[in-house]
Amino acid sequence: MLDWWLPENVSTYGQEIDWLFHLIYYITGVTFILVFATMLAFIVMYRDRPGRKARYTHGNTTLEIVWTVVPALILVILTLLSVPAWSKIKMTMPETDFIVQVTAKQFNWQITYPGPDGKFGTADDKTLLDEMHVPVNKIVRVHLKSQDVIHSFFVPQFRMKQDAVPGREIKQWFEATKPGKYELPCAELCGFGHSGMRGWIYVHTADEYAKWAAQNLTAEAAPTTEAKPDDKADAKKEAPGKAEPKKEGKAKK
């Protein structure tokens, strides 16, 4: 099995990240081989043998300038290549009408859809626990919040990661390119239940998504999860007890 590599990429900007990753992989790979080959050659050639004399030299300015400037140039180029992808992913916010609110808490993802009226904070909001449904090939905007500690919204196949910080709302986006079911782990240590804090992202085709939305996001559909306000109080009550955490951690297997 040789799939020990990046997981399949299914988002638009993922390609750019993968491209940079491979570029750096080759640059550092070549550097690594050069350094190690030189070192091994020196170790073999210049090992202590009878009669061998070491060279008395304090340095060589030309050489030193070369090996300062060449890596510096490579690194500058790498920086320049990194900047566009970064500004595309994190610094621009493409227009979209598909907005989902994600509120992290110990140890769940709460995914809130604005409901038929298209506004958050109204009575017809729909909140799902640990599952998110989005259409394929559509820009999705995520408004990330946290109720308690810092969590991190990580979708390996989307090459997407963003911490959710309590007291802030952080806006992110992605565009999935392939329908499927993807894991949504939490990537920032957030307490004893950090491992196992995991949601699922379902990427549907446009039709499927419409069907799903009709069933679940309309005013009549029952909310999938309990009301929000008590969650924090619950977490606080549970936390200090030692028995509870164990259940929490194991329940998710």
């Binding site: 990046l6 990240i17 990753f21 550092t28 550097t31 920086t79 990194s82 992808a85 991190s152 990661k161």
Partner: peptide, 24 residues
């Protein structure tokens, strides 16, 4: 030799877009 390997892996993370994926 080991410092070189460790340093070179630092370059991956120094590139912000790549770090989005490999951070943590």
């Amino acid at each position: 030799s080991m410092f070189v390997i460790g340093g070179l892996s630092g370059i991956f993370m120094a590139s912000t877009p790549v770090d989005i994926y490999i951070q943590d």
